[in-house]
Amino acid sequence: MSEAVVPHSAEKRTAAAPGWFRRVLDSDLLYSFRRSRITMIAAAVTLLFFLLAIFASVLSVQNPFDPAQLQLMNSRISPLWTADGQSPFLLGTDEQGRDVLSAILYGMRISLLVGVLGVVFSGALGILLGLTAGYFGGAVDGLIMRIADVQLSFPAILIALLINGIAKSVLGNKLDEMSMLGVLVFAIGLSFWVQYARTVRGSVMVEKNKDYVAAAQLIGLPAPVIMLRHVLPNTMGPILVIATINLALAIITEATLSFLGSGMPETMPSLGTLIRIGNNYLFAGEWWIVAFPGFALAALILSINLLGDWLRDALNPKLR
């Protein structure tokens, strides 16, 4: 039945694509996507946020982190629709005369960058360790999986904070904005690799004993290469789900670290840093400095989570 749903043109176009991609299209993924209105909204919001972040410099009225463009006389202006609002500061300005909307766009860019890089890094690390554990088995497997077990019982934020602190101690004063970004990606990567590793390891264990591996070895192909070709397509679906949900987690973790003062510095703030800054003005009644970055962060995470939930249900026929 599902074949009938897929248009023929799509089938032709994907004929050359890797197996998993075709399977994704062949499943009723698109169909279930078009049936769930909330998923479509979530996808639209996520896409919008990514576009806003990418084109931040074009859309902003100023570069909020270029001190030359800030004027103190513009500080603490409330949003445009309130009595004291001033054009062009749609969402008002902060203490230093920084346009809140521009700061959000630039901050979103940092948040998404750290999140995506963190997910890529943790995914690569997890897949590598999972393959290693599953392929070699025995003591290597035992060691990796035991580390995974122990780590899984500790919250990621604690691990990320520790790694962060150690990095600061090792690197000392050499930490500029870009290396801080690197440290965050590293900390997030090390905090979230476990789920990928478990999934990949399980799949490797299943494939390892199949005949084609022995057959491939007989004709002189290295088993790891052959297995990689079979294992990765099989695990692509689950990995995609983990990656989506982990993107939300990575963004939360980065924002939390930044909020706690152990993340992005104020000279290159992410959404979490902006919320930390804005939090100081809450009691003075300047709610907009914290409210809009907070709202943007919440909307971003909620959208990605909804997408992840839908993807998990859609790719797992057992749950339907």
């Binding site: 939360i252 924002a255 939390t256 939090n279 907070g294 962060l297 919440a298 995470i301 909620l302």
Partner: peptide
């Protein structure tokens, strides 16, 4: 979905 610190704020 809401980060803890946002709920606190």
């Amino acid at each position: 979905s809401l980060p803890t610190f946002l709920i606190g704020i």
